[in-house]
Structures are given as structure tokens and as C-alpha cells.
Write a protein that binds this DNA or RNA. Sequence first.
DNA 1: GAATAGATTGTCT
DNA 2: GACAATCTATTCT
Length: 203
Amino acid sequence: MSSSGFAPLPPSFYQAPVLDLARAMIGKVLVHVAKEGTLAGRIVECEAYRGPLDLAAHSAGGRRTKRTEVMFGPAGHAYMYFLYGMHWAFNVVAGEEGDPHAILVRALEPTLGVELMAARRNLPETSVQLANGPGKLCAALGLGASAYGLSLKGPRLFLAEGQRRAALGRSPRINVDYAGAWAARPWRFYERGNRYVSVRPRD
DNA sequence: GAATAGATTGTCT
DNA sequence: GACAATCTATTCT
């Protein structure tokens, strides 16, 4: 148990095929121990990206650059990327070393540090929009470039135990229409009925 | 509720 | 120089 009161999941948790890991991550708790306080939320939505074959992945075709480098390393590390000029997104690196797989965390149900999240997001503490999107959750938790490549063994940033409370839902991934047939694959996972899921599923 | 446009910058062609 | 695994405000219906 760390000083944050949460115990990081063991490295073995991340030693699973990327689709299995994505499923297993729903209900787990993402914890960021920041200077200003500890922030945490249940993962209620995520998406699997399986390069080099998956054309929706940043590592499509085996593209290995400064940005994608951490995806080629061992599982259980943070892959951060910046997009649209103003948003950060948080991913968990998955797969064997050399397999550039990752899981984008798309939405959290805030559980700890809600006051600080609300301040960072300039929203009421009761708002459902604190962390219901990839960019929003990074803003709420204060995650950015400095989190790139961090090991999820902790103690600063890690996943902790947590339970899924409703059935697992699946759908195609969001905003990857450019990926052709890969865009249709049901590689987005979410907790059914959870109001913090970002894009209303068809359920 | 749905559709649209604008913001703004690191990364790659 | 183009564009992106997005978010927000605005303008409809």
C-alpha cells in the first residue's frame, strides 16, 4: 500500500493480450499522486490499439518515432500524446516488448480529489463532464508531457484494484474513420449504463 | 438533441 | 504545410 492509500496493480496485470487487458481495465482505478493532492477515478471507458497492423494506431505500419517509442517498450508504462493543439491523452502500453500496442483511457468516474478536478476543469464538483473524455480526464488529473513513459508500478501514476459494476459494453472506436476497415472493429470497451461514458453508446 | 466551426501546436511528409 | 485517438461554444431544430 502506498502513501496515497492505493496499491499499484502488479506488473503481471499488464502481461496480457491488449484486448484482454482493455477489458480488464474497465472498473480499475487510475491514480495520480500530484503535488496538489491525490486524484483518482474508475476507468469506465477505454479503447485498444494494436499496431503495427491496426491502421488506427499511431504505431501503424511499425512507425517508430520519438512520440511512439514508449509503445515499443515493455507493457505497463504511460504513453501520452498531444493532439489538436491543446489536448493530452493517456494510454497504457500493452503487449510484449517490440509489439507497439496501447490502450487509450477515454473516461473516468471521479472518486478521489474531486474538488481539485473541479477546480482544474472550472466546473462544479457534481459535473458529469469532469473526466468523460480523453482530453478532459488528462486536464482533470493534471496529466501531460511529464507523465510520458512513466512506469505504472508507481508511486506517481498507476492503476489500482477496482471492480466493474455493470455489464461490459463494446463498440467501434471513436473518431478513427480514417482507418478503413479497422475503424469498424469493436475495440472500444465501457461499463454499461455508466453516466460518465463519453459518447452515448447504442446499448 | 444534433450539427457546425474554431481553437492551436507537436509531429511527420 | 497538413493534419490530428478533442473540446467547447454557438446555432440551429
